[in-house]
């Protein structure tokens, strides 16, 4: 949702060749798609879904945004560097969560005894599983977006990005 409000003004100003129907429908749809993605992420430990599916939905919504509002726009908001950053940061958070257990004197990736487990079935429960789901969501959406941007740039950008 917040992404949508961030993008809104810029889109209206810049698009010279736009398809009204596509833009209006997408402007209506995008917040709900992203909200749904967030729902899947936050309920990863309670219901079917989780890091990969939620991240894929959010990543797909960002691709949809970029396809609707001209390819170039996405570069100004979430450029390739940022998506690569999210990709790496998600994985690093996962590893960091694993190390927390090590610092408390348990094994790598220990949950019980390190993180507050909460009441099973409630949203704020399950200790590190929720954190890991969110981190994976960041990684998957970053990866999907950066794959898309890689294809967009034809695999060769002058900045020397991988």
């Amino acid at each position: 949702m917040w992404l949508f409000w961030l993008f809104r003004r810029r889109c209206i100003k810049v698009n010279t060749m736009h398809d009204m129907v596509l833009e209006v429908v997408n402007r209506l749809l995008l917040p709900f798609i992203q909200l749904f993605g967030m729902y899947i992420l936050f309920h990863g430990h309670l219901s079917p879904g989780g890091g990969f599916s939620g991240g894929a939905v959010i990543g797909a919504s960002l691709i949809l945004y970029s396809l609707t509002f001209r390819f170039a726009r996405i570069k100004h908001r979430i450029d390739h560097d940022t998506s690569v950053f999210f990709e790496a940061a998600g994985a690093l958070i996962y590893v960091a969560v694993g190390f927390v257990g090590l610092f408390f004197g348990y094994n790598f990736l220990t949950n019980r005894g390190v993180f507050p487990l909460g009441v099973p079935g409630q949203l704020w429960s399950s200790g590190m599983i929720l954190i890991i789901t969110l981190a994976l969501g960041a990684k998957v959406s970053g990866t999907i977006l950066s794959l898309f941007q890689e294809l967009l740039e034809g695999g060769s950008d002058e900045r020397g990005n991988p």
């Binding site: 950053f85 790496a88 190390f99």
Partner: peptide, 19 residues
Amino acid sequence: HAPILMVVTLLTAGFIVPL
């Protein structure tokens, strides 16, 4: 902890290096 640290060190470095 050394066995897991071997795998995790390389993985972590692999994720930091592109950053």
